[in-house]
Amino acid sequence: MTPVPTHHLRPLLLCLLLGLLVTGCSTPAQTGRYSATLITQQDHVVEDGQVLVGDTVVAGGTVVLEEGAEHRGTVTVLAGEARISGRVAGDLTVLGGTATLTGTAELTGDVVSAGGSIARDPGAVVRGTTTEEPSPATVLERGREPRAAGERALWSLLGVAVMAGLAWLAARLVPRPLHRTSAAATGFPVVSGALGTLVLITALPLVASMIFTLFLIPVAGIVLLGLGAATVYGLLAVGRALGVRAARRLGRTWSTPVAAALGTAVLVAALQLIGLVPFAGAAVTGIVVVVAVGAGFLTGFGLRPYTPPDDGIDDGGALHAEG
């Protein structure tokens, strides 16, 4: 495989630096200092007489609330373990990992378990309700009303129309950057997919961590908007390539903006239909997305063409870009 030049990875450095900042919040918060605590590794103990203020998210490691200690906020266990012998003034949600309530534990809120396990001593006091769900998705989707078939179809058509309009506009306003990104996606799909995968697996976990840290929530929002824009732009580039190639195959003389709009409409509609197929639909959509995102970063969002290093190795299965 053609190696990815290191200078194309510079956009990831900011994410990595922010990740180091987040790890600094992986210890129990001092009273009034933080509004949330993220536990990612090792054991963290709240001793007798101590008070931990704010929500706590256990994404690894272990948090121990000793007898006589108090936690004021929600405890969410995604991975790792929470051992509670003190008082929790809030809810306990276990979406993964385990939680142990000893005989001296007291919870003023509700207990929800989905995809995790809770060991509860008969002497533990839970003043709220206790709910067990079959999977975390059930908890996350709780309260969402299913849409009618007609409403889903209308939103799907609206999404196709919006993306087609954006493709036409991009092909009119920034034709050369869109063409360069399109050439990278279709000419070097393996390199683009590798870089796109690296970007997403680096950025998304960091965004999830930032959300649980109050002063990084605006940064998380900016990163999410950037990832969303990169995904949309990459899909427009792939749609442009699809439309141009379809026009050539059919012998049509469509203008590039029209070809881009039609190709993007077909691409988005196809992804929506494929997405209805369990597992396979998600896999195909994921491949298209990572290639699209990677092509954008590979070309600096079209500011420069991608030229692979001259190592004598072609990108496996590459389709040469249209001229």
Rank of each mutant, 00 (worst) to 15 (best):
residue 130 T to R: 10
residue 130 T to P: 05
residue 130 T to F: 11
residue 130 T to G: 14
residue 130 T to I: 15
residue 130 T to A: 06
residue 130 T to D: 13
residue 131 T to K: 13
residue 131 T to M: 12
residue 131 T to F: 03
residue 131 T to I: 15
residue 132 E to Y: 00
residue 132 E to W: 02
residue 132 E to V: 12
residue 132 E to T: 07
residue 133 E to Q: 12
residue 133 E to I: 11
residue 133 E to K: 13
residue 133 E to H: 15
residue 134 P to T: 12
residue 134 P to L: 11
residue 134 P to K: 13
residue 134 P to I: 15
residue 135 S to A: 14
residue 135 S to P: 00
residue 135 S to M: 10
residue 135 S to N: 09
residue 135 S to D: 12
residue 135 S to L: 08
residue 135 S to C: 03
residue 136 P to I: 05
residue 136 P to R: 12
residue 136 P to M: 06
residue 136 P to W: 03
residue 137 A to T: 09
residue 137 A to E: 02
residue 138 T to N: 02
residue 138 T to P: 00
residue 138 T to C: 03
residue 138 T to K: 01
residue 139 V to D: 01
residue 140 L to Y: 04
residue 140 L to C: 01
residue 141 E to M: 10
residue 141 E to R: 14
residue 141 E to L: 10
residue 142 R to A: 06
residue 142 R to S: 11
residue 142 R to T: 07
residue 142 R to P: 06
residue 143 G to K: 01
residue 143 G to M: 03
residue 143 G to T: 03
residue 144 R to K: 08
residue 144 R to V: 12
residue 144 R to F: 11
residue 144 R to G: 09
residue 144 R to I: 14
residue 144 R to P: 00
residue 145 E to C: 02
residue 145 E to Q: 11
residue 145 E to L: 14
residue 145 E to G: 09
residue 145 E to R: 15
residue 145 E to T: 10
residue 146 P to G: 02
residue 146 P to F: 05
residue 146 P to A: 03
residue 146 P to Y: 05
residue 147 R to W: 05
residue 147 R to P: 00
residue 147 R to G: 05
residue 147 R to Y: 04
residue 147 R to N: 01
residue 148 A to H: 13
residue 148 A to G: 15
residue 148 A to P: 07
residue 148 A to K: 07
residue 149 A to F: 09
residue 149 A to I: 13
residue 149 A to M: 10
residue 149 A to P: 11
residue 149 A to D: 09
residue 149 A to Q: 11
residue 149 A to R: 07
residue 149 A to G: 04
residue 149 A to K: 09
residue 150 G to L: 07
residue 150 G to V: 03
residue 150 G to Y: 04
residue 151 E to H: 04
residue 151 E to N: 05
residue 152 R to D: 05
residue 152 R to N: 08
residue 152 R to P: 02
residue 152 R to V: 07
residue 153 A to M: 07
residue 153 A to G: 02
residue 154 L to A: 13
residue 155 W to E: 02
residue 155 W to C: 06
residue 155 W to P: 00
residue 156 S to F: 00
residue 156 S to Q: 12
residue 156 S to P: 08
residue 156 S to E: 00
residue 156 S to L: 05
residue 156 S to C: 09
residue 156 S to D: 04
residue 157 L to Y: 11
residue 157 L to N: 10
residue 158 L to E: 05
residue 158 L to S: 08
residue 158 L to P: 04
residue 159 G to I: 09
residue 159 G to P: 09
residue 159 G to V: 10
